[in-house]
């Protein structure tokens, strides 16, 4: 029996083993590699996607369980990096190696839907399940606060990163916590 669900606003109909985790369906069957494998045990958050708007760990989600549901991955968050979380991430230049960042961004986006103005403690609580081995936590916190202020998706402010990264004015860098 094919499994049907909506992926990034498009219908999907797949013949796959029903117990295959959504993560591997996305990565290996559909070739959507933005969602990452980190632990396979819901311990790291690298594989976070949205299922009916909630952040979920796709590595422990059998694909059969998303039948009839809406799944959004990093590829579907926006087409042009215009989601406020992506914009804030670009402004604050959050990623280092970048491997955990799809999961961080998906967790942050889900948080802001539920809680548009989270405190540091609420951020820590919501993001606890996402490991960043590179230690980008400080900029993640700042970027979530920044995203909370960027109400509307504004494609133009993502331009900073479309080609070369712009210089961050030194004062702005300090103001956003650079050095601190």
């Amino acid at each position: 029996m094919p499994i049907e669900f909506t992926l990034n606003a498009k219908p999907q109909r797949l013949n796959v083993a029903p117990n295959m985790p959504l993560l591997w369906v996305l990565r290996d069957i559909l070739g959507m590699t933005g969602t990452k494998f980190g632990c396979g045990m819901a311990l790291c958050g690298a594989c976070t996607v949205h299922i009916n708007g909630e952040a979920a760990r796709s590595c422990v989600t059998p694909v059969s369980s998303v039948a009839g549901k809406q799944v959004v991955t990093i590829e579907g968050l926006s087409e042009d990096r215009s989601h406020p979380v992506q914009q804030a991430w670009i402004e604050l230049d959050v990623p280092q190696c970048g491997y955990c960042q799809s999961g961080q961004i998906m967790s942050a986006a889900a948080l802001l839907v539920k809680n548009p103005q989270p405190s540091d403690a609420e951020i820590d609580d919501a993001m606890r399940g996402n490991i960043c081995r590179c230690g980008t936590y400080h900029r993640i916190r700042l970027a979530i606060h920044r995203a909370a202020r960027l109400k509307e998706p504004r494609a133009e402010s993502a331009k900073a990163g479309l080609g070369g990264g712009e210089l961050l004015p030194t004062a702005e860098f300090a103001a956003q916590g650079g050095g601190k």
Partner: peptide
């Protein structure tokens, strides 16, 4: 000068190709 990374845009959109991808 504090300079934004050239690889950030792809890293916030899931496009960066890691070995595993």
């Amino acid at each position: 000068k504090p300079t934004r990374r050239l690889d950030t845009p792809d890293k916030v959109s899931g496009r960066t190709q890691f070995g595993i991808d």
